[in-house]
Amino acid sequence: MSKILRILNRLNVGGPTLNVAYLSKYLNKKYHTEVLAGHKEPFEGSSEYVLNDLSIPYKFVPDMYRSIDLKRDYKAFKYIQNEVLKYKPDIVHTHAAKAGVLGRLAAYHNRNRPKVIIHTYHGNVFDGYFSPLKTKIFLAIERYLASISTAIVAISDQQKNDLVNKYKIAPADKVHVIRLGFDLDRFSQNSDEKRQQFRSFYNIQEDEVVITITGRLTAIKNHCLFIEALQMLKQQKPKLKFKAFIVGDGELMEPLIDKIKQTELSFCRVADSNYLADIIFTSWRKDIDVINSGSDIAALTSLNEGTPVSIIEAMASKKVVISTNVGGVKDVIKDGYSGFLCEQTPESFVFKLKKLVEDKELRDKMGANGKKFVIENYSYFRLVQEIESLYSFLLKEKN
């Protein structure tokens, strides 16, 4: 039996937790997995329930948080290093940035160095996060970490191209493209019933088009663009009947509300019940399948993305999607086929959003196309098979 130590940034809502959960649960029994995770930020939704629902044991790494703090980070590094020493894994597989730094260093600089060290990039922090100087420093660190890694996993073709050619982090033969995988069944089940449940609760009229955006309320997700596009949409003549839902939470909740106050748009806070408002904030929700069923259009306005889980789940719910053309988004959305890709301007966004709001037949056609694509390409069965093949290949090479 081969032992795997899987290390995750933090247990917050998003793709990395789901990736870790499905791999830990469904890998061949010849692999034994232990999971270490950092701590989420106070405003982030917890994803502990994902691992708990699948009966996956895990331990928190003391002092491992998203933000950079050299004193805390060193303590977290020593903790992981000690776990590697005790567990003696054959494979250390890290997921996302902070875990990738501390986990790979702790594995490589260890008396019990594992045979294989792998890192999965679920996104990157090289665009839209830090100043040019800090970005150069992080790139230098990532290049060193790639040199001590046995393999790198990119979650899209675009991401591999960025890692190899744009940022020159690793050579092409070290980077393996393995798309994320999810349990998408619940997004197809009882859709009509869920739609009725959602729209009845929020008093949504049959002819109102619901536009939903899901994600952390943080700068990189660029919700300001979403609000600006909605304001322009409301000013269209003749007026269009729509309602928007902002699903998620974060440090920009109040600044976003302040921005809405400067427009003609009305809003409903999480604890309020003004469901006649143009924009309704829901905070974090576990019933995304219900929200997707009740929605008509799924939106994404990010400045940078790896593979956006919210869009894949919406497509599995047979919803048309509209997104800024960033990162690995174009590997998921085929422009004009399953949705629209836009420039990072409200004019570009609202031009295509208006088409979707006005044309139900177009929404239905694109939604059906998108569902077929993600069901075929983003199943966790495929994810597990491809990761198993990579593990087997790398261990065989080392042996």
Rank of each mutant, 00 (worst) to 15 (best):
S2W: 13
I4T: 12
N9T: 07
Y22Q: 12
K29I: 10
E34R: 14
K40F: 03
E48P: 00
V50T: 02
L51P: 00
D53H: 03
I56E: 02
P57K: 00
K75N: 15
V84R: 10
P89I: 01
H95F: 02
A96L: 02
K98G: 01
A106V: 08
N112I: 07
R113L: 04
P114K: 12
F126R: 14
D127T: 13
Y129L: 09
Y129I: 11
S131K: 09
K134Y: 05
K136I: 06
L139P: 01
I152G: 00
I152L: 05
I152N: 03
D157F: 12
Q159G: 04
Q159Y: 02
I169S: 06
A170M: 11
H176Q: 14
H176P: 06
I178N: 01
L184K: 08
Q189S: 14
D192H: 13
D192P: 03
F198I: 14
F198Q: 08
R199L: 08
E206S: 11
G215P: 03
T218W: 02
L225Y: 13
L225C: 13
L225S: 12
L233A: 03
K237W: 03
L240E: 08
K261A: 09
L265S: 03
S266D: 02
V270D: 06
I279Q: 08
I280M: 05
T282K: 04
D287E: 14
D296T: 05
A299G: 06
T301V: 09
E305Q: 00
P308Q: 11
I311W: 07
K318R: 15
V320Y: 03
G328W: 05
V332D: 09
S338A: 09
G339M: 09
L356A: 08
V357D: 08
K360W: 04
G367R: 10
N369H: 15
G370A: 07
S389A: 15
F393D: 13
E397C: 04
K398F: 05
